[in-house]
Design a binder for these strands. Structure first.
Lengths: 347, 347
DNA sequence: ATGAAAGCGCTAACAG
DNA sequence: CTGTTAGCGCTTTCAT
């Protein structure tokens, strides 16, 4: 054990040149077996460990990638990040995580991470990039891949949120609901998340497809927390001509709707149907019907894609669209009127 | 804009030496104002950006720290990590996140992260370290701080889990419960988390303090997921001589108990009281009484502590104990028998 | 105040 | 197969 043992010392002790030691370390085949043993022995005896910085500088690669994530504490984000870390670890990359909560943070990070020799690549989660930002990164020779976000010319993995919004809404419509509300989140000034507006588009499309006129008063927004959603939902459900069903753009928002319903004494799904989006862990717990998207897998695919980029391998698909799936649990049912009509018919 | 502009080119263009350019970049005061302007102008014109690796190597510091986290997707972990990232970002450190799910991963990471010039410091979350591991890291000149984990001689921030377990149990006992169960998680082979065993110790101490004999059959374990906990809780509650209350060692486990109760048709808190631990976001949502620990803050304190270590500042406290607080919501109430006795008295 | 030069520790091309 | 040497790009004495 020795502090600060350098390759030269190992070479000298083993009676070889530094080149040979380097070859041994990096598993080059062009080293006689005896020599290798001797070097290895000295390395162990001296407790030598190569300097990461030095080898990275010589190699011209940091063997690290950064991931830009908005709101790390959201379960959906953590799930994606989990997938990313898994493959990056397996591929031997360090993963620098940058939590982003404001547009300034996003831009600052995006800029700084493009510094020479800072990271080999960047994975951006959910945050839409402007063309020039993406180009700046790539022009700097830094690999770039987007997850849950879109930008032409940049490798990306995403889901069809319009289809997802349609899926959720159509489920409610098929059940017989005619007053279906939409609960989205407020636009985080400047962050420009695109997923939720797209889900809203899907909602409108489904309505139109069913010949139902869009009621702007049934579209609400709240901050992205259970409490905030509950508050907004309380107003919505307590107002005049309330909906019999609501499509909440994320499971977290749906939780708020559920809480509001309970507080108002509404039984779900008897008095109110609710469908969410994402299928985070708690969704199953509260038996929420929801649109499931492969969160962890999106992270894995994105990370794999980045690894390809970094190895200069051809990216298999510039744009990978992951499947969405409606998971029906017990937060959705036909509206009371329909159910009663059914009874009447039967009777 | 130029790809690969190096400091020498800037120096040449500005008609100065590289030393001067370096001084300008790093804000050294010993540069004439005119010179500084000229250099700055050239830097901008050429689009020069210093190489992170090169400066780090010269400086002998990576300006990066690693954080070892077990099970990133657990809400409590994400909350802590969020706190860590916040202060590290503010302090200008990159944060490499290493997710750890097995003892081998933990040991491998701990070993590799101690490579020279890999990171300046390591923050370990919840994972207990053996003395020799901690010493190896520190001996390698890498800063080390523990969060939610204990190890003499290492700066750390934690809570008193024994006291927490006592707090939760005493609350139930004070309510009049006499059959109080404990639900912990299975020992993750080799990971050796210590928090939950300590909470169990607090539970036993509270029982003893109330003169109640410990019933081993009331102590159960499950994997750390809502589903698994629900399964175990179902057996517990459906068995002979079931408890009237359960202290679940984490909120996630408590969720399982709640789910099991509902499935069995037990009303909470009328037929069963439940108290959890952590106070993660969902706890409020399901109105779970719980022992709150400052999750995000623990991360912040830990990160701050690490920053002190890295700056060779004296660490204010080797061992910071954060406060615990009982949050009573509506998952706890007196047991039915007691409530009825009370009624009788009144009547 | 500023230029020249010696590292920081390793990799890789080149010669042998 | 292996030793030597020239970088990788920046910081920092040490002179001037």
């Amino acid at each position: 054990m020795g502090r600060g043992v350098k390759i030269a010392e190992v070479a000298a002790t083993a009676g070889v040149g530094v080149g040979t030691v380097s070859r041994v370390i990096n598993g080059s085949s062009h080293v006689r077996d005896g020599t290798r043993q001797r070097v290895l022995e000295v390395i162990n005896r001296l407790g030598y460990r190569p300097s990461r910085l030095a080898s990275s500088l010589a190699l011209g690669s940091t063997r690290a990638v950064a991931v830009l994530v908005p709101f790390l504490t959201r379960p959906s984000v953590a799930a994606r990040l989990n997938g990313i870390l898994g493959v990056l670890d397996a591929e031997g990359y360090d993963c620098i995580v940058c939590n982003v909560e404001t547009p300034e943070q996003r831009d600052r990070n995006l800029h700084n991470l493009a510094d020479p020799h800072r990271v080999d690549g960047i994975l951006v989660l959910s945050l839409p990039l402007r063309r020039h930002q993406a180009e700046a990164v790539m022009a700097a020779g830094v690999g770039l891949v987007l997850v849950d976000s879109d930008c032409a010319g940049v490798p990306r993995v995403l889901v069809d949120n319009v289809a997802g919004g349609h899926l959720a809404t159509a489920h409610l419509l098929d059940l017989g609901h005619r007053q279906v509300a939409f609960l989205g989140d407020i636009t985080y000034k400047g962050m420009g998340f695109r997923s939720i507006p797209r889900r809203l588009a899907g909602y409108r499309r489904a309505l139109a497809g069913a010949g139902i006129t869009f009621r702007p008063d049934l579209v609400r927004r709240s901050r992205h927390s259970v409490d905030a959603a509950a508050e907004v939902a309380t107003q919505l459900l307590g107002g005049r001509d309330p909906p019999t069903a609501v499509f909440a753009a994320t499971d977290t928002l749906a939780m708020g709707v559920l809480a509001a319903a309970e507080a108002l004494g509404l039984l779900v799904p008897r008095d109110l149907s609710v469908v969410g989006f994402d299928d985070i862990d708690v969704a199953a717990m509260v038996k929420l019907s929801t649109v499931r998207q492969p969160l962890q897998r999106s992270g894995e695919e994105g990370a794999r894609k980045l690894c390809s980029v970094l190895r200069d391998l051809p990216v298999r698909a510039m744009r990978t669209v992951l499947p969405l799936e409606l998971v029906v649990r017990s937060s959705t049912a036909p509206p009371l009127v329909t159910a009663m009509a059914g009874l009447r018919e039967v009777g």
